[in-house]
Design a protein around this nucleic acid. Sequence first.
DNA 1: AGTCTGACCGGGG
DNA 2: ACCCCGGCCAGAC
Length: 110
Amino acid sequence: MNDFFDMVYQVVRLIPPGRVTSYGAIARYLGTGQSARMVGWAMNKAGAQPVYVPAHRVVNAQGLLSGKHNFGNSSAMEDLLLSEGIRVENNQIINFAEVFWDPTKELMIE
DNA sequence: AGTCTGACCGGGG
DNA sequence: ACCCCGGCCAGAC
């Protein structure tokens, strides 16, 4: 892998359908806990990646769909999450704690 | 080259 | 509960 961004994309691809994680959680898993912003920036570039990245499964620490506006269509992100059984209301994931997928716990360190 | 901004987060007042 | 601030680093202007 080239850099930090590719690591991010790999982790995001490992998120199971129907689950979500947060930018900070990914950052922490990669060892750069304070660089959650870079994860967000990586997501911005994710659409341009050759391989599909389920960026809709990544939200902020509050379970808020902070990046839905970047999906082009404001309903796209909600729609995708909804189709996976994740309830969203007013840009906020309702059962966030239940669907939250923490890479540091679920994935463990390699 | 300086400055600001961001799909962020945690902590402090 | 609120607002504010520092840290992180890559781009845009």
